[in-house]
Write a protein that binds this DNA or RNA. Sequence first.
RNA 1: GACCCAUUAGCUCAGCUGGUAGAGCACUUGACUUUUAAUCAAGGAGUCCGGCGUUCGAAUCGCCGAUGGGUCACCA
Length: 497
Amino acid sequence: MSETRDEGIIEENLNEILRVRREKLAKLRQAGKDPFKITKFNPTHKSITILNEFESLENQEVVIAGRIMTKRVMGRASFAHILDSEGQIQIFVQINELGKEAYEDFKAMDIGDIIGVKGDVFRTKKGEISVRAKEITLLAKSLQPLPEKWHGLKDTDLRYRQRHVDLIVNPDVKKTFIIRSKVIQQIRNYLDARGFIEVDTPILHNTAGGAAARPFITHHNTLDIDMYLRIATELHLKRLIVGGFDKVYEMGRIFRNEGMSIKHNPEFTSIELYQAYADYEDMMDLTEDMIATVAKEVLGTTQIEYQGQPIDLTPPWKRMTMIDAVKEYTGIDFNSFTEDEEAARALKEIGIDLDKPVTWGEALNIAFEERVEDKLIQPTFIINYPVEISPLAKRMNEDPRLTYRFELFITGRELANAFSELNDPIDQKERFMEQAKQRAAGDEEAHMMDEDFVNALEIGMPPTGGLGIGIDRLIMLLTDSYSIRDVILFPTMKPRD
RNA sequence: GACCCAUUAGCUCAGCUGGUAGAGCACUUGACUUUUAAUCAAGGAGUCCGGCGUUCGAAUCGCCGAUGGGUCACCA
């Protein structure tokens, strides 16, 4: 091994590609051309702007900057493609424009290097809009080779672990995250325009409430207490309704210590919003209008396709009670049962085995989840959920076994969950106590008792509609992404040895 | 958590019933002043995911493990 340690950058045992690039960097430094000493560069144009506005820019001087993606050297003239944040543009490099030394420097540059190019816009003989380089500045040396130019990076492990490389070589990935950003922006626009205010509630919770999920536990050293990463924003947002904000929302990260799948990541983004003096019907209206509006703003249409299935987001969306949905798909009419046992027997008759006794409401929900949920492809609001599984929703006046709650299903997946919020503190406390019983019986996902929240309800919360939407799943739908990992920039990964 | 599949050069992938590790891109050297998967010539590049075993001999067969993907379970 050659011990060229003077520059501190030639390490031993590197493969040839890495060694060669480090040697090139060392040479640049020796020649006083260290690219990493450059602090600033001022491009005047983006690649796509030049392509789009060629007529007015032809023969004009522009300055662009970006990454070399391809390079074709032919003796005294060369072509390369430069990738910037918007796209790619070709540059044409000739020895008699640059001079011998600069041309040799260019020839030594590698795919992956970041360069700045000053030159005139023109069209090549083959018709491609290009920049004829008059000056090329190396702005950063790339010491690692990029993946191959036409297959890109396919290995999912590498794509998720090295998202920066994925973004460079797979243009669709960047497109997905641009849409993600726009969707989030449009949701904010929509709500802001309707008088909602965006708030930030704590992520570190003393009680992990607002959902049925196992939390991540962490520790605060000074207070010497365990704390939970939030599993929902619900209980704090409702406190704000008590406090007199009539319309609030929070979009942010939620953490659930549960399994991972194409639909689940341990940390994900939700939006919850609450509107005083509104009910769950209002929340349905808002949900379908907001999602359709966002789709139109971002994609230009409410007719989309998800994994080959056409999906029509044009409102109004189908609304169906859970009882009717179960009746439609299984023939079982839960309205006809008055006893828990009858309901359980009906499940057995359609081949659903139970490992423990269930209530009427639990049986209804099991029938729905087992036999209906994945068939709801077009947007469908399933309304009126059993009270046992809805400890934060208001009981229906018409049937105290049910609540004013809905979930939204699209492509067989739950996208939103909403209710007329339970604001009766006595009922809320009883529901928490029921949950606490289940928790004591070993259900780690049952809700925790939150006395402080009950106290807030005792102060008095107006009738309120609340809505939660899984942002990642919405983005999956709108970007036709198969896995939640394709809409999260840095999905949770196991560390490698 | 269970089961199935994958892991070979920087990347994308071949590698048959066990017999000297391959291709394309990328890289190096040379030629080339309008290429665009540039071309032509030559060259270098490997912990075949890791460990153990079977065997005269293992990328290939077996067992254990790692990571990823998928299906199921879990996720009101």
